[in-house]
Simulated scan of single mutants.
Amino acid sequence: IMVVGGLPSAAHILGGTGDPADKNIVAARDRVARGLEELVPIALEHGVRLVLEPLHPMYAADRAVLSTLGQALDLASPYPTKAVGVVVDTFHVFWDPQLQQQIQRAGLEHRLASYQICDFNLPIASNALQSRGMMGDGHIDFSAISRWVSQAGYRGPVEVEIFNDEINQQDSALTLATMSQRYETLVLPHLEQAAGVQPASALN
């Protein structure tokens, strides 16, 4: 999974180096496209699939100039599906007005490689990376997004990916129990219903 990087002007924030005056986001995105073009033949040679992950626009400066699923699919489109896929991470893409259509497109193009979930908490933490929350604690509609992902044909693993200092510091057994309960309540039934599977909860 590829987090493609931000602007040279912000590289120092993550310990890198770059021209503080270089804030050209169009050029940065072009470099991502050219880098992908160089990597695809190597990926194909070694049986590796490159998976593009769009990040929330608040990370465009320092972490990823790739912000929407549509952008990721446009970058992937020239290449074989076995070489380049995309990931749907709810934290990063829930806000996108084109999300349903782009998830459907990703399914039709056979590029859905991963589904990652966590919630979007407010207020934003001083370190925005730590604003991910347990499903149900924030503002993301997991029922809709899970249905869209399932309807697009995704049947792979669902990764709960939470960066949150408070959750990291609590007892791991509590985290696991809460995560399991929230997943079974907020996510799994919608994945199963959209796939035409009777929800597990209805079988008990």
Rank of each mutant, 00 (worst) to 15 (best):
T185Y: 11
F120M: 07
M135P: 10
L36D: 00
H12D: 06
R155Y: 09
Y183C: 10
G35E: 05
R105A: 13
V187E: 06
S180E: 15
L73Q: 01
Q98S: 10
Q102Y: 03
E166T: 14
D96G: 04
Q169C: 03
V84F: 05
N164P: 14
R147A: 04
L44D: 03
L203R: 09
H92Y: 07
D19W: 04
A125K: 12
E192G: 03
L36N: 00
A27E: 15
I167H: 02
G70C: 01
A61V: 01
L39C: 08
S172H: 14
V93A: 06
P57Q: 15
D96W: 00
P20I: 11
E192D: 11
A113W: 03
G15E: 02
D22C: 07
H139F: 14
Q169Y: 12
G47A: 09
K82S: 08
Q98D: 12
N168G: 13
A10E: 05
P157V: 04
A200Q: 14
L75E: 01
V48R: 09
D171A: 02
Y79V: 01
I117K: 04
A195F: 12
T68S: 10
V158G: 11
Q151F: 07
A83R: 12
A152W: 00
V48C: 08
A106H: 02
H56I: 10
N24L: 14
N164K: 01
G47Q: 13
A27S: 08
D89A: 12
G6H: 02
L176E: 14
V84A: 01
V4Y: 02
G5M: 11
A33S: 10
Q100L: 05
Q98H: 08
M135Y: 07
D89K: 01
P78H: 00
V65M: 03
A27L: 08
R31L: 14
R105S: 12
E38V: 06
G16C: 07
L186T: 07
G6A: 09
A177Q: 13
H139W: 12
H190Q: 15
L50E: 02
V158K: 03
K23S: 02
